[in-house]
Amino acid sequence: MMVRGPKGHAGLGGGTDLPVLLPAAERLQRRSERERLLGAPRLRLRGRDLAWLCLMLICFTGYAEAQAAAAGREPISIALLRWVPLLFQGFVFNIVISVLSMALGTVLGVVLGLMQISLLPPIRFSSWFVTQFFRNAPWLVLLFYCIFLLPFEIRAFGMRIPFPDWIKAIIGLSLPVMANVSEIVRGAVRSIPSGQWEAAESLAFNRNQTIWKIILPQCVKRMLPPWMNLYAILTMATVLASIVGVSEVMTLARRVLAAEVRNDLLIPLYGMILVWFFVYCYPIARLTQWLERRYAVKL
């Protein structure tokens, strides 16, 4: 027998007659509605999760601290604090890399995405190919290509313009971003009901005007959540640059560990970096969810 809720929705979390469950039922119902729209259960991160993560790390550090004290060594927290300024600089560098490659990737991706909806088949096909190629290539492989194929300096007109690794890393990371943004743009344009195109045409807008004045403004809010999602993923991927020798936070962490020559620092140190990334990416994830809710298409 089906349980009918106050609003007549059926199924799990869809409502209840039991007064004590009413507040939760409302929330669960909203959630299951969203999940039905999404077609998949959504991962929900809460402030609680961060608290758990921190608690775990504090416990572990405390345990390692006690061991260090027993072995008559310098406490871990002091050793760690000494390196925090340096490591934090490295972390800021990661953020800089992520922001710049996102900016570059977005500009290129929007161009590529608009090319994908071009009426000219060669442009449409070639941009489709580039998009698919970079979207389906491993990020690290692209990074390797950029680091080792691009020169370390450019000699032009008798000048030496250095071309440091971190700029190459930005270029390398912006390629997959470009391809993903291209798909986001194409998808958003395609999601606008065809009635909009037809209406614009009947009002004598040409194609250019239709795209820039009618379609794209409606796309922006649809593109924002996936774009922010992509940014969060990119931020977490910036640590890949450590493999190709950019002095970002992971590279520095490894050097710090080598300078300290004590391996009980390993897990607290990496744990600290983990928390930094979480603290940075979590608000972005929350904001994305909020925007998704706000801009959700009401059917």
Partner: peptide, 14 residues
């Protein structure tokens, strides 16, 4: 080297 104490490693100020 920046990862091989004592031949080449980092000080706390980088």
């Amino acid at each position: 080297r920046a990862d091989y104490r004592p031949y080449g490693y980092l000080g706390p100020n980088g």
